[in-house]
Design a protein around this nucleic acid. Structure first.
Length: 244
DNA sequence: TAGGCCATCTGGTCCT
DNA sequence: AGGACCAGATGGCCTA
């Protein structure tokens, strides 16, 4: 649940009360304060003593030259206070706008993740993948699909393909016996390290962090099951996304 | 109740 | 200057 907006705004105001920015000359009109819904009297640096606002005071001053100067100073001082309040208000409005943009940005990101979920194979229990699960699953799924296409192009059966998919240096990296059942049991823990996985990936990059990180989601993992893909292929599918 | 996941806010940085 | 992006902080909700 988001923090109450009012709380955030008041905090922001408090945080920005120490601003030394001077907008004198930028805005001193009361209309601007009204337009921005600013209080006419604000907190902040002590305002010059107000001896009655002009036009409000009932006293009939007949300003001499000295009085006019004092009046000018009063107006300047009051304008400065208002300008600082205005600065706070501008900052606040920018912050609110930025928050709104950030919220929309995250909503778009979530919508993209939902779209990605929708094209991934769903599970019987219809559980919604978390964000990180969606990314990992998609990564592996794409790899498996790419491998399927590649094998189809080569006309290789899955069993033969497996031999080709596993470079010799990767054999020791395979956790567990080569039998599919054992693979599934030993890979499903989510903690198995499979540095060789990246080496078998057509999508992998030598600079990829996957080359030196731990990996999760082995063939025993539900996220590792791709309907319609050759069974043998699944057991050679690497897990690229670093797990931590 | 602890831990995981998530939404939101926020300030900093980079880009246009 | 303003927007996009990012990471940290915070608090709510849910589950084991």
């Amino acid at each position: 649940m988001p923090a109450p907006l009012e709380t955030c705004l008041s905090d922001l105001d408090c945080a920005s009360n120490n601003s030394s920015s001077d907008l004198s000359g930028f805005l001193t009109d009361e209309e601007d304060c009204v337009r921005l819904q600013l209080p006419v009297s604000t907190s902040g640096p002590p305002a010059p003593a107000r001896r009655g606002a002009p036009g409000i005071s009932g006293t009939s001053d007949v300003p001499g030259a000295q009085d006019e100067e004092q009046e000018r100073r009063r107006r300047r001082g009051r304008g400065r206070v208002r300008s600082e309040a205005l600065l706070h208000s501008l900052r606040r409005s920018r912050r609110v706008k930025a928050n709104d943009r950030e919220r929309n940005r995250m909503h778009n990101l979530n919508a993209a993740l939902d779209a990605l979920r929708s094209v991934l194979p769903s599970f019987p229990d219809d559980t919604k993948l978390t964000k990180i699960e969606t990314l990992r699953f998609a990564y592996n799924y794409i790899w498996a699909l790419a491998e399927t296409l590649r094998l189809a192009d080569q006309g290789l059966p899955g069993g033969a393909a497996r031999e080709r998919l596993l470079p010799p240096q990767c054999a020791p990296c395979l956790p567990g016996p080569p039998s599919p059942a054992s693979d599934a049991e030993s890979w499903g823990s989510g903690t198995a390290a499979s540095p060789c996985a990246a080496a078998t990936s057509p999508l992998s990059d030598p600079s990829s962090p996957a080359a030196s990180e731990d990996f999760a989601y082995g063939p025993g993992d539900p996220l590792f099951s791709f309907p319609g893909l050759p069974k043998d292929l699944l057991h050679t599918t690497p897990c690229f996304i670093p797990y931590h």
